[in-house]
């Protein structure tokens, strides 16, 4: 019986990692679309939301089923807790990808003086930082290994600082040219979404820590 449970749990973990890849691709592609001013890619990200919702609901339900049927304890219980958190974080990260895709669609314009603003504000750089945090948190979950998340707190600080810088720079651009206000406000929202995604990677990291050690910590 317990072999069956452990096989099922391992299977669920694999499916959750597939969901993670899906939501990560939504965030990554939305950032690519933003950088390249790519309307078609942004619309494809929006379309992926449906699959994200489906994965979220079914995986969550299947984890509940495992709890009801097997009443896991100790590390198994902690794996369940961590998996639920990863599912929830995946869903949020994918939705922020969709939100960024919406920004791309709203602000689509081929004039370079507008599109250059994305790079000028360091949004692609921030996106890379956040994606690498998400990747490492998920790697920690996959391999149940704390080394991948050992610097999450400092990395999150860097992302927070960057968001603050982007905010101040954005204000300067808006003061320089009030026609940029709508676009720039949207870009500041992108920075906000990215910062939230970094927070979700920290939430995953906290639960990976719990999974491995049984202790709860707060990563800020």
């Amino acid at each position: 019986m317990s072999e069956k449970f452990h096989a099922e749990l391992a299977g669920k973990k694999k499916q959750i990692l597939v969901m993670s890849a899906h939501s990560r691709s939504m965030l990554r592609d939305s950032m690519v679309a933003l950088e390249r001013n790519d309307l078609r890619l942004a619309e494809s990200v929006k379309k992926r939301k449906e699959e994200l919702t489906h994965l979220n609901e079914t995986l969550e339900e299947e984890i509940y089923r495992l709890i009801a049927l097997y009443q896991p304890v100790a590390r198994d219980m902690r794996m369940i807790v961590c998996s639920l958190k990863v599912i929830a974080a995946n869903e949020r990260i994918g939705r922020y990808g969709k939100d960024i895709a919406n920004v791309v669609i709203k602000t689509i314009n081929n004039e370079t003086k507008y599109t250059d603003l994305v790079t000028a504000l360091s949004l692609p750089h921030m996106g890379d930082l956040v994606l690498s945090m998400i990747d490492d948190a998920l790697r920690g979950y996959e391999l149940e290994d704390l080394t991948y998340i050992s610097h999450h707190s400092e990395r999150d600080d860097r992302v927070d600082a960057l968001r603050h810088t982007i905010f101040r720079e954005g204000i300067t651009y808006m003061m320089e040219d009030p026609r940029l206000i709508t676009r720039c406000t949207n870009y500041l929202m992108v920075a906000r979404y990215l910062e939230r995604c970094a927070d979700h990677s920290c939430k995953i990291a906290e639960k990976v820590y719990y999974l491995v050690t049984g202790e709860r910590i707060e990563i800020k």
């Binding site: 449970f5 452990h6 896991p72 304890v73 100790a74 590390r75 219980m77 902690r78 050690t213």
Partner: peptide, 17 residues
């Protein structure tokens, strides 16, 4: 014991390994 046992043997037993 059931959330975070100290010994691996306990862990393996209560999780049915």
């Amino acid at each position: 014991i059931f959330e975070n046992p100290n010994k691996e043997l306990t862990e393996n037993y209560i999780t049915g390994r």
